[in-house]
């Protein structure tokens, strides 16, 4: 038996707040692994991804969800994320094994913190900090984009009509939460 035990304390652990019709919560055990497509090995990598997840790596800015509930998020031409629920710190090994070395993977789980904002007026709140067009015409369900909110680099994904997944750097989780909460309070 090891003498010492480490406990996980993700920055927004357990957050779940309701403001009027809006709910703000931190998804639990969200694992994130980046997948980089090797130069010259893109096709093989895309094939491996398809084989591993049953869905193809989507276009840049889009998401695709596998039967197993993993979400593929393409962030740039040669890089994407796979996001899935997984509590232990071995996400990278799992993805790596699935892709059989056809792509370069990096564990990003602890790089990010995530918030899910849902509710009919969530867009009004996000309008206060997000420079992107959040209306259907500019942001369809299933899209994921990277931008800046209140000086924080942020990924925003529309997972449902009134549901948004927001990801930002884990070290500034407190400021990120504060920014989102302030937006919510300012419109409610």
């Amino acid at each position: 038996m090891p003498e010492f035990t480490l406990t996980a304390e993700p920055p927004l652990m357990g957050l779940n707040e309701t403001f009027g019709d809006m709910v703000l919560r931190a998804p639990a055990d969200m694992a994130i692994v980046s997948i980089a497509l090797p130069l010259g090995g893109e096709e093989a990598a895309l094939k491996a991804i398809k084989a591993a997840y049953g869905v193809a790596m989507p276009e840049v800015g889009q998401m695709a969800t596998s039967k197993g509930g993993e979400t593929l998020m393409r962030m740039s031409m040669d890089q994407g994320f796979v996001v899935f629920t997984h509590p232990t710190p071995d996400a990278n090994a799992i993805v790596n094994a699935k892709l059989k070395g056809k792509a370069y993977t990096t564990d990003q789980t602890d790089v990010w913190c995530a918030l899910e904002l849902s509710g009919a007026t969530s867009r009004d709140a996000l309008e206060r900090i997000c420079p992107l067009d959040l209306h259907d015409a500019g942001f369809a369900v299933g899209e994921a984009k990277r931008t800046m909110m209140e000086h924080l680099g942020t990924i925003i994904a529309r997972t449902d009509t009134d549901t948004w997944l927001l990801m930002s750097g884990s070290s500034s989780a407190g400021s990120f939460l504060h920014a989102i909460e302030t937006s919510i309070k300012n419109v409610s």
Partner: peptide, 14 residues
């Protein structure tokens, strides 16, 4: 541009 090299920040991750 033809180097196979990929960068990703992990500052906050570790």
């Amino acid at each position: 541009p033809n180097m196979d090299v990929h960068l990703i920040s992990t500052t906050d991750g570790w």
